[in-house]
Amino acid sequence: MKKAQPPDPDEISLIDVLGALNDPIRVGLVRVLADGRERGWGELRVPVAKSTLSHHLRVLRDAGITRTRQEGTRCFVELRGEDLDVRFPGLLGAVLGAADRDDVGGHVGVVGGLPEARADRKPGAPQVES
């Protein structure tokens, strides 16, 4: 099986990033992942089928926004916040701030909890851990 890899940091394209963020589900996923924690796909609470979630996560990965890691049959995803901030300073914070203000993607969260965007972050401040 071919292992899918996100682009290298210097190959992340602004057009690809903006294109990937043109969907409320994907913006919601970025909001959830903005706390810097790696999440198992099964932890993500989204109002779509698993195959559609897989598509959204692939779009985010292919654009360089997230990184996916497979461990056995489980997949984990994390935001590439540092890479994005180096490549496009301030972009992620601006997107997250606007998404918080307009509640874009607010219906996406984690199983058993509030959407992480509301629970762990101040609006507009991407708290991405190393």
Results as ranks from 00 to 15, higher is better:
29 L>P: 14
30 V>P: 04
31 R>N: 03
31 R>C: 13
33 L>N: 06
34 A>C: 14
36 G>D: 00
36 G>H: 11
38 E>C: 06
39 R>W: 00
44 L>V: 12
44 L>A: 02
45 R>S: 15
45 R>M: 12
46 V>G: 12
46 V>C: 13
47 P>D: 13
48 V>P: 04
48 V>T: 12
49 A>C: 03
50 K>F: 04
51 S>V: 07
53 L>H: 10
54 S>W: 11
56 H>E: 14
56 H>I: 10
58 R>W: 11
58 R>V: 09
59 V>W: 06
60 L>D: 11
60 L>P: 08
61 R>Y: 07
61 R>E: 14
62 D>F: 01
63 A>W: 06
63 A>M: 11
63 A>K: 04
64 G>K: 04
64 G>M: 05
67 R>T: 10
68 T>Y: 07
68 T>H: 14
71 E>W: 01
71 E>C: 08
72 G>Y: 00
73 T>F: 09
74 R>F: 07
74 R>T: 12
74 R>M: 07
76 F>T: 01
78 E>F: 01
78 E>K: 13
79 L>T: 06
79 L>Y: 09
80 R>Y: 08
80 R>Q: 08
81 G>I: 05
83 D>V: 00
86 V>I: 05
87 R>H: 10
88 F>N: 12
88 F>D: 09
92 L>T: 07
93 G>N: 15
95 V>K: 00
96 L>S: 01
97 G>V: 03
98 A>M: 07
